[in-house]
């Protein structure tokens, strides 16, 4: 089965990108830590603590990123009795995809959306919003679940989650450093003639400014890595998994009509969702920084798929997109 290699290539590339992102951010962290330590003339103890922090942070990122992503979005485990249909649909699509059943979560908001997260197919979770369950019928919901399980099967989920958390952390650090620098340092400047304090505040502001410049660049990197091609591919392979493109196409059409904004989503996490969580971005024109392709285009591509049993899996036959 030669074409199957394309799926393996795709998965290998996703794992590699994930590793590169983790290493890249560890290096950035290391540079900031070393600069801070040498500027403040902190001792060996600080460097040991800092090294430990980077190690622990990476372990948490790898093993708990899915829990963080679920918690940040306010997702809670879906009760099997209350959400019997959702559980049924996830089970049946998992059978179709040949994957173990992922964890099922519900987000209590009117904005219709969904995302998948986890380390890989054996540790995966799917979260859908209450609004999504309310507006979609069974077939459409099945299409959305199939799209998310396609992300799971392709190992998109780990990369998307890690990138979301790193993006979020960068923004958090930038805010912390800028505030520290201006507030603590700024207030002390006139009263305190100690030169060390003045230098420290300067360093903090500088680090904050570097991060402020870095953040948008990193967001652009995220956009490049989590290419919009990935969404087209998950649409196509989702449709292939359930051998039905119309459910997902109908679901996307309904999502396009919604004007509800997802409160918990930010620029760092937007790419994880099936459609942009910001209602204004769901429009027709694609711009460079958009996290998702235009919905009308995705629907048109889905409707042009006429699937039969003989059709090959898009993951297995098409070459993986070049970024």
């Amino acid at each position: 089965m030669a074409p199957r290699r394309h799926l393996y290539q795709l998965i290998a590339r996703n794992k590699l990108s994930t590793g590169l992102f983790i290493i890249l951010f560890s290096i950035i962290l290391g540079v900031i830590g070393l600069a801070l330590g040498s500027a403040m003339r902190w001792g060996t103890g600080y460097y040991v603590m800092f090294g430990l922090f980077v190690v622990v942070y990476n372990l948490v990122l790898y093993f708990n990123s899915d829990r963080i992503a679920l918690a940040v979005n306010g997702a809670r485990a879906a009760d099997p009795a209350e959400y019997a249909q959702l559980h049924n649909i996830v089970e049946e699509v998992a059978i179709a995809a040949g994957l173990p059943k992922p964890g099922v979560y519900v987000i209590d908001t009117d904005s219709p959306n969904a995302f998948a997260t986890g380390r890989g197919p054996k540790h995966a979770s799917i979260a859908v919003t209450r609004g999504l369950l309310e507006i979609l019928d069974r077939e459409e919901l099945q299409g959305v679940v199939a799209h998310e399980l396609a992300h799971v099967r392709n190992y998109d989920i780990l990369l998307m989650t890690v990138v979301a958390i790193i993006g979020g952390l960068i923004i958090l650090f930038r805010d912390i450093f800028l505030r520290w620098g201006f507030f603590f340092g700024g207030g002390r400047r006139r009263r305190d003639s100690d030169r060390g304090g003045g230098q420290a505040q300067l360093i903090l502001v500088l680090v904050g400014l570097v991060l402020a410049i870095l953040a948008p660049i990193l967001v652009a990197l995220i956009r490049a890595a989590i290419s919009r091609q990935r969404e087209y591919l998950a649409d196509a392979s989702g449709a292939y998994i359930v051998r039905n493109p119309h459910g997902l196409a109908g679901a996307l059409a309904k999502l396009g009509q919604s004007t509800e904004k997802l409160r918990t989503a930010s620029n760092a996490t937007a790419h994880m969702f099936i459609t942009s969580p910001f209602a204004k971005d769901r429009g027709e024109s694609a711009n460079w920084f958009a996290s998702h392709p235009p919905l009308a285009d995705r629907i048109a591509r889905l409707n042009s798929l006429t699937l039969s049993e003989e059709d090959a899996d898009p993951d297995l036959t098409t070459k993986t997109p070049r970024h």
Binding site: Q85, N88, E92, V93, A96, V242, E309
Partner: peptide, 15 residues
Amino acid sequence: EELTATENKIAFSRQ
């Protein structure tokens, strides 16, 4: 709903 889900599971596991 249970029967629909089971029918789907039959079809998908067959596939």
